[in-house]
């Protein structure tokens, strides 16, 4: 018997969004009847070129915009429902932070808004600051920070309430390759804990590494969607990998394939990605060098984010559609 599909956490049904000018005349048709669903525990990637409607979709999901037509459900509630937002974490495209507040103040104030108890707020702020490696700079105004440091605070505020659903808008923008890798590891860790993650990006490699489903937006329409594996797989082509084959074996295999199928087999040597090369060089240098600035410079998670998967601690958030 196959496992039942997990419940839908996000349902977007025929959503249009038209931005209007001061006089109410249509200005931009940002979304043209998009449909998609995101199920619990999935990492969903929303791809598309600039201006395709990714950020508009994010803002609709957060209730910051209202759809012109169609409907959205998020955690089985209307996005305008304020209560549901205590279960959502949002990391915006830019690190929108108050420049004169310190990281400590920023996180504490967000914790108060979220209704965390004083003890929980203090503990989580400490743990997150340690996780993002900004304990040493906790009293400095955020306005003095580099873009990468600001991104890390932005990440911390999104995780402060240990949300069930995490919306990440261009999360790796401004991070160095090591930071990107740590960020992707964090996303995968959170997904293993049962969190649902929606990742909006035009950095295809990032999406490919972490997402299990994607939708590609173009000009406000979804032009492709489905499981990442299904969309990327060339099902008519097979690849055979052999470690250190002898020239005789290669020759023999080629002859067999030629005889059997009448086709020439293509033989090449797989290459590592530039990211793999960069990370391995950095990791070998890291042993005796100073630590670079990544998403999680300390390389470990906040304890409150390291607990058992959500599905083991709480019932599903939304019923199946």
């Amino acid at each position: 018997m196959s496992n039942p599909e997990p419940p839908a956490v996000i349902t977007v049904d025929g959503v249009h969004k038209i931005f209007r000018d001061f006089w109410g005349r249509p200005k931009v048709h940002a979304l043209n009847g998009i449909h998609f669903q995101v199920r619990q525990g999935r990492v969903f990637g929303l791809l598309g070129p600039n201006g395709s409607g990714k950020s508009t979709t994010m803002k609709l999901l957060l209730g910051l915009l209202r759809p012109s037509r169609g409907s959205l459900k998020i955690l089985n509630a209307d996005p305008q429902d304020v209560g549901v937002k205590s279960r959502i974490g949002y990391m915006p495209e830019e690190s929108y932070l108050y420049p004169y507040l310190s990281p400590d103040e920023t996180l504490r104030l967000y914790g108060q808004l979220l209704g965390l108890s004083e003890h929980e707020n203090r503990t989580r702020t400490e743990e997150l600051l340690e996780m993002i490696g900004l304990t040493h700079a906790r009293r400095r105004p955020v306005g003095e920070f580099s873009k990468g440091m600001a991104r890390r605070i932005s990440l911390a505020q999104a995780l402060l309430n240990d949300p069930e659903l995490i919306l990440l808008d261009e999360p790796t923008a401004g991070l160095d390759p090591l930071g990107c890798r740590q960020f992707k590891d964090l996303i995968l860790h959170l997904a293993r804990r049962g969190k649902t993650i929606v990742l909006c990006s035009h950095l295809l490699a990032d999406v490919e590494d972490v997402c299990d489903r994607i939708a590609i937006l173009y000009n406000g329409r979804i032009c492709a969607d489905g499981r990442m594996r299904d969309l990327l797989q060339e099902s008519r082509i097979c690849r055979l990998s052999i470690r250190q084959p002898s020239p005789a074996l290669i020759d023999e295999l080629q002859q067999t394939i030629r005889k059997t199928t009448g086709q020439e087999a293509a033989i090449d040597h797989p290459s590592r990605s530039l990211e793999d090369l960069f990370l391995s060089a950095i990791r070998s240098a890291e042993a005796d060098q100073t630590r670079p600035s990544g998403a999680l410079p300390e390389g470990r998670l906040a304890p409150f984010l390291s607990g058992p998967p959500v599905s083991e601690t709480t019932p599903p958030a939304a019923s199946p559609p």
């Binding site: 910051l64 808004l113 919306l167």
Partner: peptide
């Protein structure tokens, strides 16, 4: 856009 982050919280 600071407001977007603030209003994404439950206020």
């Amino acid at each position: 856009g600071i407001l977007s982050t603030l209003l994404s919280k439950n206020i």
